[in-house]
């Protein structure tokens, strides 16, 4: 893990995220969100969590981005941004960023050296998921089923 890759990925991710937040065209913003999430997945690869990076690419870039593009096309009548950018949001976001950065730089316990990382294989993840995380896994399954049914009920035709 070297600094050059970190700086390049950080600049790429933050620039893509800023473009996704400020571009006036909705479709360009959705594609910039995909770029930002790809940068985030490469951060995960850099940190040694390859499986989570792959899951992020599959779910966000494969499913959520396609869902967002579908919704933009279905509600396509006014995909142009309505005028009136709210500048108080900029002030609040800058204040939050300043507070978080101050707190991170102030905390002494965060200045630790990176330990030698032991790779976490998919086999180990599966074993841990089936041993200690069975109940959370079942709850996520129920939640996903409920979300699927809820989304279907929401978009069904209204009865007259």
């Amino acid at each position: 893990m070297n600094s050059v890759a970190f700086v390049i990925i950080a600049i790429f991710t933050l620039a893509a995220a800023l473009a996704a937040a400020t571009l006036p065209n909705l479709m360009h913003a959705a594609l910039c969100l995909v770029l930002a999430l790809l940068g985030l997945a490469s951060f995960f690869f850099l940190l040694g969590a390859e499986f989570v990076g792959l899951v992020l690419v599959f779910i966000y870039v494969g499913a959520v981005a396609v869902l967002i593009v579908f919704t933009i096309l279905l509600t396509g009548r006014d995909s142009r941004e309505h005028r009136g950018f709210n500048w108080s949001g900029v002030v609040i976001a800058l204040a939050v960023f300043g507070c978080l950065t101050w707190a991170i730089l102030k905390a002494q316990s965060l200045t630790i050296v990176p330990p030698h990382i032991r790779a976490l294989t998919v086999r180990q993840i599966g074993q841990v998921l089936m041993a200690g995380y069975v109940w959370p896994l079942q709850c996520v399954g129920v939640l996903l089923t409920a979300a699927l049914i809820g989304a279907l009920v929401l978009v069904l035709e209204e009865k007259r």
Binding site: F6, A10, T13, L14, A17, L18, A20, A21, T22, A36, L40, F43, L47, E81, F85, N86, W87, S88, G89, V90, I92, A93, L94, V96, F97, L100, T101, I104, L105, L110, T111, I112, V113, P114
Partner: peptide, 23 residues
């Protein structure tokens, strides 16, 4: 270091907050 990752994460969070509040 860990702080560098946390600062990048704080930046990403603030940009998300900017998008959620100002659009």
């Amino acid at each position: 270091t860990l702080q560098a990752f946390l600062i990048v994460s704080a930046g990403l969070f603030s940009i998300g907050l900017l998008a959620a509040l100002s659009r």
